Amino acid sequence: MRGSAGLGWPAASPPPAHDGLVWQLSDVTELPRVRAEVRRCLDAGGPADLRDRLLLVLDEMASNALRHGGGRVQAAVRRTGDAILVAVSDGDTRTPPTPAVDRDPSEGGLGLYLIAELSTSHGWWVDGDAKTVWAVLRPG
């Protein structure tokens, strides 16, 4: 099932990816551990700017899914050619990622705009009982 993307988030599958890290998450309190794991892996040879963008995108996507996604959250960071794919799945298949409109920035809700700005491509799709939101980040 594919739906409308809603305000700039295209309904599309991500590029093929391989290798990487995967987490099953149930609470935002797990995100510091996830960030530490990503840092350990990327400090071994990745550019600092890519690491920082990746951590921010992963944190925004995972926290959105944990807060609004209906449970069963899986987060993954994988390689796709010369880029990195961040994909976060949750159980809310009926609600597309929808950026906040006409909201005071102090109320939050700007994470999807940030993810779109930091990535070279992004999208979402529904497969069975899971919705996946994804973003691709490239070095530089």
Score class of each variant (00 low, 15 high):
P16V: 09
T98L: 13
P10G: 04
H122E: 03
P47R: 14
L42A: 05
G6L: 11
R78M: 11
G3V: 09
I84W: 12
D102P: 01
L50D: 03
A65G: 12
Y113D: 12
L21M: 15
D90M: 09
G3F: 06
G140C: 06
Y113P: 00
S26F: 09
G45F: 04
S121E: 14
W125K: 01
R72N: 13
A17F: 04
G123R: 00
E117H: 15
E117G: 08
A135Y: 00
I115A: 08
R103F: 00
P47S: 12
R78P: 06
G81L: 13
D104Q: 11
G69A: 03
L66V: 10
G6K: 03
S63E: 09
L110I: 00
S119K: 02
G70C: 09
I84Y: 07
L42R: 09
A135N: 03
R35A: 13
R67G: 14
E37V: 07
W124M: 01
R2H: 08
S89K: 06
G8K: 05
D19L: 07
E30V: 02
G123T: 03
E117A: 15
R138C: 13
Q74W: 09
G45H: 10
V86Y: 04
V88Q: 08
R53F: 02
M61T: 02
G6C: 13
W124V: 05
D127A: 14
S106E: 10
A12P: 00
L118C: 04
M1D: 08
Q74I: 15
A75M: 07
W23C: 09
N64I: 08
A76L: 07
L58R: 09
A5L: 06
I115R: 04
L112N: 01
G69S: 10
A17H: 03
I84D: 00
A17R: 08
L58N: 06
G81A: 12
T120I: 12
L58P: 06
L50P: 03
S119P: 01
Q74T: 14
R39K: 11
G81E: 06
A83C: 14
H18F: 12
S121G: 05
G128A: 15
D27Y: 07
A12I: 01
D102I: 02
R79W: 15
G123Y: 00
P14C: 10
L58S: 07
G123N: 03
A48S: 08
R78S: 14
W9T: 05
V22T: 15
A17C: 06
A76Q: 14
V86N: 00
R94T: 10
S13T: 06
L114K: 08
A135E: 00
S106G: 13
V133Y: 02
P97W: 04
V126W: 01
A12E: 02
C41V: 15
A65I: 13
P97G: 05
L110Y: 13
M61K: 01
A11P: 03
A135C: 02
R51H: 12
A76R: 15
R79A: 11
Q24L: 13
P15S: 07
A65Q: 10
V86G: 01
S26A: 14
G6V: 11
V38N: 06
V136E: 11
D52N: 08
G81M: 11
T80H: 06
A76C: 07
E117Y: 13
S4T: 10
R33A: 15
D82I: 04
A11Y: 04
S13N: 10
L21D: 03
V34T: 05
S119Q: 04
L55P: 01
V34I: 07
V126F: 06
L110K: 00
L50E: 08
M1L: 12
E37F: 05
L54G: 04
